[in-house]
Amino acid sequence: MGNDRRTIAGVACGIGAGALWGLVFLAPELVREFSALQLTVGRYLFYGLFSAFLIAPVWRTLARKLGRREWIALGWLALAGNTLYYILLSSSVRLGGIAMTSLIIGFLPVAVTIIGSRDQGAVPLRRLIPSLTLSALGAVCIGWQALAGPASGAVTKQVIGLLCGMGALVSWTCYAVGNSRWLARLEHVSAHEWNLLTGAVTGAQALLLIPFALVLSTASHTTLAWTKLAGVSAGVAILASMLGNSLWNRMSKLLPLTLVGQMILFETLFALLYGFLWEQRWPTALECVAFTLVVLSVVSCLAAHAKSHARPTTEPIRSCSSANA
């Protein structure tokens, strides 16, 4: 019964995180006059500022709990899951469109679940094959129209957008796996505190990127445009980075890595939903099929984990890679 409650709570957190993270696909469309680097710097400056403000009262106590390894981990997790990932994602959306980018990011569950299946106590990969198959089919359906239809721009732009999307896929896969495993190790640091620490480190990285953003910018912008960028950046920082990451970290402490991977699908689903609202259209038949496949993928993965929990064990299964704790 306890495992069931943890699973339900974890899935709810995963859905919430996906709903908030889906907003990041819209941000590049809202401020197209600015580069991906400028948008990344803006978002993570606000994320770092908000995180530093919230963590300030407990900073001294929290800092004593962290050693050199933890700070190194925060550095590369902030880079892989935030700074580098969002530069690549924004570039992919601009060059290839939301649908193509969603297709590529839609393969995240497959990558994370395959890696997580090697953890001690994880559900065997053979039992996850139906879920992975449905996930892959859903991802293919999501982006099929964008890839099969006429290109919206030059072929070179499409190829670069595809490569940026693939880079974002690799970057966030590394983050998802590494972050889950670190959260499993850090029993003395809460998921919320880890999120704020990640935000503070990401903000520091954004500060280092400001000179590059200024040097590489060739266009001039009005005061209204800069205000719009600040508003979008602050909104994405609060909703996606602060609240979304907090829900994701909470979920990562409740669910095993094989199930964590499936939860990423909700980001893709909500990104598409927001895209339909932005484009003011209904989903096509193929997109409806994709929605159905994705939902069935998550349901089948939940069923596989429920069967695993039902089996008697001599020791409770720890979430998120207890083997590497």
Rank of each mutant, 00 (worst) to 15 (best):
G16D: 11
L196E: 07
A219V: 13
A52Q: 07
L89I: 12
S91Y: 00
T313R: 15
Y274H: 13
S241P: 02
R64M: 10
L134N: 01
L296D: 05
T284Q: 12
F270V: 05
R68G: 07
A271P: 06
L224F: 09
Y47A: 14
M100W: 08
S117E: 03
V215L: 13
A230Y: 04
W144C: 09
E287Y: 03
T292D: 06
G116T: 07
V11C: 08
A303K: 13
W248C: 08
G14T: 10
S300V: 10
S51A: 15
V159F: 05
V112Y: 00
L137Y: 01
G143C: 12
M251C: 11
G16Q: 11
G161M: 05
G2A: 11
H309D: 15
M263H: 08
A240W: 00
I8G: 00
S321I: 02
G161E: 10
L74F: 05
V215M: 11
M242N: 07
W282C: 11
L255W: 00
R318A: 12
L265A: 13
W144E: 04
G14E: 03
T314N: 14
E29I: 01
L74S: 02
R43Q: 14
L286M: 12
F276R: 12
A9C: 13
E29P: 00
S241V: 10
T156Q: 14
C320Q: 14
L208D: 06
C164L: 02
V298H: 04
G2H: 12
Q205D: 04
R250A: 12
I160E: 07
A184H: 05
A204Y: 05
M251G: 09
E193W: 02
R181E: 05
H221N: 06
I317K: 10
A111S: 11
T222D: 11
T61E: 15
W76K: 02
Q145M: 09
G235P: 10
S152N: 13
I105L: 14
S297F: 00
G2E: 13
I55P: 00
A225I: 03
N82K: 01
R126G: 01
L108N: 07
W144Y: 15
L196V: 08
L134T: 05
Y274N: 08
T156A: 15
T218G: 15
L128H: 03
F25P: 11
I72C: 12
Y44K: 07
F107N: 08
L259K: 04
A213H: 06
L137S: 10
I210C: 05
V93A: 02
W194E: 05
R118I: 11
V93W: 03
I98F: 03
I142T: 12
Q262C: 09
G167I: 10
G116I: 09
A36G: 07
T83W: 00
V215H: 12
N324F: 15
G167N: 05
G161C: 04
V24M: 12
V11E: 04
L132G: 03
L125P: 03
A184R: 09
V177G: 07
